[in-house]
């Protein structure tokens, strides 16, 4: 957030960090600064089946959504699928994991499943020495 010259990167009151594509100028400072390699820079939305094929309806939809949300020539990151979270859904990777290895919830609530798991399963953050206090925790192996 600090390195972002345009304040495109913002932290919401619930802690989720987002990138405002309209403000992002694509300077990539954040990608350099991020100790987790979590920033991706998307130059141009590309199709899956090659340029010689017309875009499928799914790709059309995906492209539209992508550009609405992230734009092109901007920096992107995981924002916990904020549009799903706002609808009361979990981020897409949670139902996507067949093994139930991922959890999502409210860290501020000490009674929530995630808070509880971090306590009981020795949750830890990556690279705490950077003092970023990331909201992604890993549970220790059992």
């Amino acid at each position: 957030m600090k390195v972002c010259p345009t304040q495109a990167t913002q932290q919401r009151s619930d802690g989720i960090v987002t990138v405002d594509k309209d403000l992002c100028v694509g300077c990539k400072y954040c990608a350099i600064a991020c100790p987790y390699g979590a920033r991706n820079f998307v130059e141009k939305w590309t199709s899956y089946f090659g340029d010689d094929q017309p875009l499928s309806p799914l790709e059309e939809y995906g492209k539209k959504k992508w550009i609405e949300k992230f734009g092109e020539g901007t920096s992107t990151k995981c924002d916990f699928c904020v549009e799903r979270v706002e609808k009361g859904l979990k981020p897409a990777c949670i139902p996507g994991c067949p093994a139930n290895a991922r959890y999502f919830g409210d860290l501020d609530d000490p009674e929530s499943e995630v808070s509880r798991l971090i306590k009981t399963e020795r949750g830890f953050q990556l690279a705490p020495e950077f003092g970023t206090n990331p909201r992604v925790y890993y549970l220790s192996p059992r």
């Binding site: 089946f49 094929q53 499928s56 799914l58 139902p95 996507g96 994991c97 067949p98």
Partner: peptide
């Protein structure tokens, strides 16, 4: 829950 192959189903549906 499903696996990545299931998630990728729409790509099969719309494959040109």
């Amino acid at each position: 829950r499903i696996c990545p192959k299931g998630v990728a189903g729409p790509m099969l549906l719309y494959d040109p």
